[in-house]
């Protein structure tokens, strides 16, 4: 079942509580009362169709309406993607790191194993952070600048040269590496650590890892299948305009 505009937001959460964090990213917080999706979007000045597509792709990964989503402005997507990055780095990763720290007081494992897991998770975190920083510092600013250029009349030569020097295709889709480490960490915990005397903290960590994986997959899909084609079209428009000028 897909989420539609006349549903109450409270019903949306009853249908799929994994959406709580996604909805927060739009600036909508709890305490929905009886308000519907469309009422809350209006109150928060969020384009309704954008909200619905994002929430539905997250709710049902097999629903991925590329055609509908190519209509959106790049800045709208980037704003959402940026909020998602903040959520990973400021909330989800520190949360998992906390659990891993709690493991160190746990007598259920040997010191060696704790050290190994800690080290592996640190490696993962630094890879993810590097990936996100590259997007935040390089890719997104470029796209936003391109969008500003296309929506105005001005023809600042320095800006044109700067935009010409980069292309979205240089943005190698290296989502595979980040995904692979997370996949490994899950399997190591599920299959290969020596049987602990108590699994409760590990269960919590695994739960977090599954949630993070689901979220990251959706995020990478939006970047690869929506953002890149949109920017590709913008670049074509940019070249058409700068060639004729």
């Amino acid at each position: 079942m897909l989420i539609h505009q006349d549903m109450k937001m409270a019903e949306v959460i009853h249908l799929n509580h994994h959406l709580l964090h996604v909805i927060n990213r739009f600036g909508i917080q709890l305490g929905y009362g009886e308000k519907t999706v469309s009422q809350l979007c209006q109150a928060h000045d969020i384009p309704l169709s954008f909200f619905l597509e994002i929430v539905n792709t997250f709710h049902d990964p097999s629903y991925f309406p590329i055609e509908n989503m190519l209509q959106f402005k790049a800045s709208l997507l980037i704003n959402y993607l940026h909020q998602t990055h903040r959520y990973y780095l400021d909330f989800r990763i520190p949360e998992i790191a906390n659990y891993i720290k709690r493991l160190s007081d746990d007598k259920a494992f040997s010191e060696d194993i704790k050290g190994l897991l800690q080290h592996f998770f640190n490696q993962y975190t630094s890879e993810l952070t590097t990936h996100i920083n590259k997007e935040e510092q390089r890719v997104y600013p470029y796209v936003l600048e391109l969008e500003r250029f296309l929506s105005s009349e001005h023809s600042d030569q320095a800006l044109i040269q700067r935009l010409k020097a980069y292309s979205i295709h240089e943005y190698e889709e290296d989502h595979d590496d980040v995904e692979a480490k997370l996949f490994d960490l899950k399997n190591i915990l599920i299959k290969y650590i020596p049987e602990p005397t108590d699994s409760r903290i590990l269960n919590l960590i695994l739960h977090e890892l599954f949630e993070l994986e689901r979220d990251l997959n959706n995020h990478a899909h939006i970047e690869d299948l929506i953002l890149v084609p949109i920017v590709d079209k913008m670049e074509q428009a940019f070249h058409a305009r700068t060639v004729s000028s």
Binding site: D112, I113, L116, L117, F120, Q123, D177, A180, K181, F183, D184, L185, N187, I188, K191, Y192, I193, P194
Partner: peptide
């Protein structure tokens, strides 16, 4: 067979199974 893709993941597996020593 193992469901582990990365070199660092395989390294952790190898240590856990005493195939190498840390």
């Amino acid at each position: 067979k193992l469901g582990i893709k990365t070199v660092s993941g395989l390294t952790v597996y190898a240590i856990l199974n005493k195939i190498v020593e840390a």
